[in-house]
Amino acid sequence: MRIVVLVKPVPDPASAGERLDADARLDRASVPAVVNGNDEFALEAALKLIATAGEGEITLLSMAPTSAPETLRKGLAMGAHRGVHVTDPALVGSCAVSTATVLAAALRKLEYDMVFAGIEASDGIGGIVPAAVAAHLGLPFMSYAAAIEPDMAARTVQVRRISPTGYDLLEAPMPALIAGTQALGEPRYPSLKGIMAARNKEIVTWSLADIGLDAGSVGTAVATTTVLDIRMPPARAATEIVRGTPAEGAGRIVDFLVERRII
């Protein structure tokens, strides 16, 4: 079972220090980078599938600046086998469309039964890259996966997709691209053995030339979106903690909701 997991290094959402620079691009030096949360859920699902199957290989694929391997190591420490890092100076300022083009081109060079991705990245929150990559490659695309069940003998994969009313049960032939959510399960915390093993795992670096793309087809010049303005959200009001007996607490909460005409 060969699974490619698309991963994106994002500024740590917990740090709350995310900043854009003068060009309205992310100031990567200001905050530590982590693996995008949704991608970690997808990676966790891949790791569990391989553990159950007893065989398989997980490749992390990322299009990111030169500092990315540091972040990819965290995914390798969780148990992925190798990393592919696509980076090129021409990629600066790429929009989601360029990203999908690049990832699709890289996937053409890889062998896989399934591609997993997080449903969206916590920095841009665009949520279109997985679908766009599937469209480029003509792969079946199943999103909002809460459970993934491959059948290697039949070369099909079943996905439980979260719907507004419950679950849809989808099935597609392999290879397929599946975008997952936190419903896939809490990602594991890497063990020290995993961290040490990750130091010696391979991360190959590909340039645009390596994946057969022209520098002019991606990057700032052809970006389809532009950031016009950014603003911090207004600070939230202080938390109110209600103490007392359950009855008193319930009374206070009801008053609170009534005051705001919520109930």
Partner: peptide
């Protein structure tokens, strides 16, 4: 360090210490 077996809520404390 070897088994990654610990109460789930510790994960976020570990990650916060590591990252922040």
């Amino acid at each position: 360090l070897e088994e990654s077996r610990f109460p789930a809520e510790m994960s976020s404390a570990f990650r916060s210490m590591e990252n922040q």
